[in-house]
Design a protein around this nucleic acid. Structure first.
Lengths: 109, 109
DNA sequence: CCTTTATTTCACACAACCGTTAATTAAAGA
DNA sequence: TCTTTAATTAACGGTTGTGTGAAATAAAGG
């Protein structure tokens, strides 16, 4: 079971949010590539990756001395679902949501 | 513009997440009702509400001595959108998302 | 095997977060 | 207007989070 407070906490740091967004754009990346993205030290990045991993936001693949990280789609799904799991709230709001979340990976662009 | 790290930080505390979930279920509520939900003191709840408000997660309506709080739908929309704003990621993942977020406020239940 | 490369863990310092009780603000009601 | 009620702000202490440089681990390569 996904702990949403932990998921949100993992994404509440600017460095970590950037790392996740980068991984979503670029796909799986080794720790070194992620470390080069930021101004902070490699040990600091390493610990951020650990926080994200322990929260289930990213996964790790080991190959030799390299550790490849990638975003866990299930975590993203859990976040989107959390916002949607309150039908009464959305029904009560003035917002019209139809189509708002009509995602279409294969689609236009 | 919504600062996502701030939004996620606001939701990263168990007490605050509970408050938001309660407000989504129950709709607008005065601070007193929210305070009764938790074991912690009223001042502590008050500060949690402030954090949520400053992050834009909830809004406040003042009436006499009462302050009524309610969830800001725009904040929920922003969270769901953040997860969806990475089509390449979703397209690359194995997850099939069609219908997953098919919300239907008027619908079944 | 010795060195280099990739990455993490350790030890420490400083800032931010969260809870408490006491004090303050301000509207309502007798 | 004095008191009660609703809620917040203030002041303090303890815990957690985040950064750094140094040390450790472990696979690769000469």
């Amino acid at each position: 079971m996904i702990d949403m407070t932990r998921t949100f906490a993992a994404l509440s740091d600017p460095t970590r949010l950037s790392l996740v967004e980068y991984l979503m754009r670029q796909g799986e990346q080794p720790a070194g590539a992620l470390s080069e993205l930021t101004d902070i030290s490699a040990p600091a990045v390493s610990r951020h990756l650990k926080v994200l991993r322990e929260a289930g936001v990213i996964g790790q693949r080991v190959a030799g001395t390299h550790r490849y990280y990638s975003v866990n789609p299930e975590a993203m799904r859990a976040i989107a679902s959390w916002t949607m799991d309150h039908k009464a709230f959305w029904a009560g709001s003035l917002e019209r949501l139809d189509g708002l979340l009509a995602i279409d990976p294969e689609g236009e662009e």
